[in-house]
């Protein structure tokens, strides 16, 4: 187990809206932590030996770290854009590597088989070429010009459309998805996957959204995203091995998997291997 490189990262550990004095007992990378509000109502995260951990409140969530973060929590400019609705989807626990959860989020080829008649449907299974890069200036993985035919792309979509996506990986266990916004074609809907690594092979997943949608009820928006993620969960809990294999040979990617290939390469380059399996192990 190598925690070094990932220990200094920020991770989601709870919803701001659910902070209370009693606190949420949870874990971060194997260490028991308590996420609570103190006497002044401020968020406080306490590590296993009583030490006070750093805290940030952003994007609906409480963020913390076991180490000493060198960088500020990554920016999501859309989180400050007027007119968007911000949706806390709530936690879902999954018995898989936090890295597998992110990789699945970056994948579109599974839509027709796992999110049938919502995000994809046979015979529209082809993945067109798209662009992937590691943006050195911000040190993030980006996939752009990702297009896929979707029967019901969003709660606000009324029929099948070809949806365009952009994916960003700004932190080893977080991804931000930009997606065609049916009611406002000039903007992108933002859907994120924030993953809290409880241990190398189990995680709490906190999806969050920043959408332009004045029509759909908040509950419907939450349920749409929960539906999608719970369809993924039964896949994630049945991948072998549970850890993400970082060395080639164990799994076979194709052109459709360019985002996943770049993600794995970026993880390896930074030694982000908590939740990964290496041949050397």
């Amino acid at each position: 187990m190598t925690m070094q490189a990932m220990i200094d990262e920020w991770y989601p550990v709870g919803l701001i809206s659910q902070l209370d004095a009693g606190g949420r007992r949870t874990a971060l990378m194997g260490e028991p932590i308590l996420v609570a509000s103190d006497i002044d109502g401020k968020a406080k995260v306490t590590g296993g030996n009583g030490r006070i951990l750093p805290v940030r409140l952003r994007y609906g969530h409480v963020w913390s770290s076991l180490g000493d973060p060198k960088n500020e929590l990554f920016p999501i400019p859309e989180a400050d854009q007027p007119g968007r609705r911000f949706v806390d989807v709530g936690v879902v626990r999954v018995r898989c590597s936090p890295l597998r959860a992110v990789e699945n989020f970056l994948d579109i080829a599974h839509f027709p088989f796992v999110h049938t008649d919502i995000l994809g449907a046979e015979p529209h299974t082809e993945v067109q070429n798209y662009k992937v890069e590691i943006r050195e200036d911000v040190d993030e993985v980006w996939a752009t010009q990702v297009k896929f035919y979707q029967p019901q792309a969003a709660k606000s979509a009324s029929g099948g459309i070809t949806t365009e996506y952009m994916y960003r990986v700004p932190a080893p266990t977080c991804s931000v998805l930009y997606k065609t916004c049916p009611p406002r074609p000039s903007e992108w809907d933002v859907i994120t996957l924030f993953v809290q690594p409880l241990a190398e092979d189990i995680c709490d997943v906190w999806p969050w959204m920043a959408l332009f949608d004045d029509e759909t009820s908040l509950t419907d928006l939450i349920h749409f995203q929960q539906t999608i993620f719970l369809q993924d969960r039964s896949i994630l809990e049945n991948q072998i091995p549970r850890l993400l294999p970082l060395d080639p040979g164990m799994e076979i990617p194709t052109r459709a998997d360019l985002t996943s290939i770049a993600y794995r390469r970026w993880l390896k380059r930074h030694n982000y291997t908590y939740g990964a399996q290496l041949v050397a192990q």
């Binding site: 039964s234 896949i235 049945n238 991948q239 072998i240 294999p245 164990m250 799994e251 076979i252 194709t254």
Partner: peptide
């Protein structure tokens, strides 16, 4: 084998 070589998913599903 109960494992798809692409992404390790159990083929029995």
């Amino acid at each position: 084998a109960d494992r798809c070589p692409h992404r390790g998913m159990r083929l029995s599903h």
